[in-house]
Write a protein that binds this DNA or RNA. Sequence first.
DNA 1: GTTCAGGTCCGAT
DNA 2: ATCGGACCTGAA
Length: 271
Amino acid sequence: MKICVSAEQFSPRRTFLCGQCFRWTETSDSFTGIAYGRQISVTEQNGIVTIDGVPDNEERLWRQYFDFDTDYSEYILRLSADPTLELACRASSGIHILRQEPFETLLSFIISQNNNIPRISGIVGRLCETFGDAIEDSAQSCFSFPSARRLDGIEEGDLAPLRAGFRVRYIVDAVRRINSGEVDFSEIDALSLDKARERLKTIVGVGDKVADCVLLFAFHKLDAFPKDVWVKRIMAQYYPDGLPECTLGIEGVAQQYLFDYIRNKTAFLNN
DNA sequence: GTTCAGGTCCGAT
DNA sequence: ATCGGACCTGAA
């Protein structure tokens, strides 16, 4: 089946390129991505965004994944009480915060630390090629993200093909704690932000930033506020005394708009 | 050859 | 508690 939404409401480019995901690639006229064991394509044409590759019985899942049933204009209205955020929202409207799979999000952001985006995507890709399942009826050969169960008992040496460097130790620890139940995603989901963050941080290699990325991009805890190097720069320049009140409870949404805004602004300055 | 990239760990104060 | 250096890898 196809799912259609207006391009005004949802911008594929801004959503997929704002740093929250690593498995969407842009082709000439669309984006192709892999999630939940499916290959999905997203095409924007004449103001309409079309989602292809969704099985009939999975409409609900994918509307959730893309967060199509949330009215982002309300967030934008609230955040626009602050002048800097108003600019950011205007420049980056159409961003949605995805609901990605927790295990994939956890490993992806563990891999992301002290790393650059092309290499992160490369490592994640090799992880899927090495341990994931081939996805049927996809044009090219593509692979699902391996489950924690699939990686059960994995050791550092097994991960050598990934060329993930010092992060393999962290991946091994994450897999072990997930499979042992020490870290339980359904529990994390039910916990408050602070408790959930502390739980995730018991995994070696997971600090505040990685934990908050997982809580925002997988568990959709909108009060999570991942402070990467870019957001720290914004905070220092515009919000030395902390975030404005209008962000209360939706700090993560503010983070995405600010992040996209400052990155694109910087890209513009560098050109 | 050097530097740098979506952080975190670890050992020294 | 806080702080700085080290860390795999590979592209610029």
